[in-house]
Amino acid sequence: MARPVRFNIKGDVKLVTEGPEGYAGEGFFATTLDKLVGMGRKNSMWPLPFATSCCGIEFMATMASHYDFARFGSERVGFSPRQCDILMVMGTIAKKMGPVVKEVYLQMAEPRWVMAVGACASSGGIFDTYSVLQGIDQIIPVDVYVPGCPPRPEAIIDGFMKVQELVGKESLRRRNSDRYKELMNSYGIQ
């Protein structure tokens, strides 16, 4: 009797679709170290959610089973900055909260990335007022901005894949470069 459900037997499912470029042969594979490190880093990014409002709710949906953020190697949401690779700032950051965001960023170890999720974290959003920080890029450097008010989980995933692209292509020497040090100095970070 034929099995009622037949899957993964025709050979059209590939477990690994892409790897780094390199020379492969019988029993060996040669590539550059930073490509391997980049592949490793980008597929095991630990997010540190800094959720203050409705964008944080969208992130919860992104983490849950339907959108399943774990597919990107990020099921381990860390609430300790020292263990995390990417700071995801989601929601309105009041000026009084600004030093807290900066402190969290400073406690993260290099290499670290920052994603501003939603209009408020990116630019202050509709809160064009005396008490709200007009974008977190006034206090810490940001790698990827996700627009939306709030953005859908698809948008957050798209932004995360943009970060993965940056991480995978980043040179191992970037964080020692003068340009990077200049960027950090412009934020008063040593």
């Binding site: 630019s123 202050g124 064009d128 007022t129 005396y130 008490s131 007009q134």
Partner: peptide
């Protein structure tokens, strides 16, 4: 003192809005 009426409600540090 931000709620005195001589001060505009909006943040004046932002020029690109």
């Amino acid at each position: 003192f931000p709620l005195r009426k001589e001060y505009p409600l909006e943040d004046q540090t932002r020029i690109d809005k």
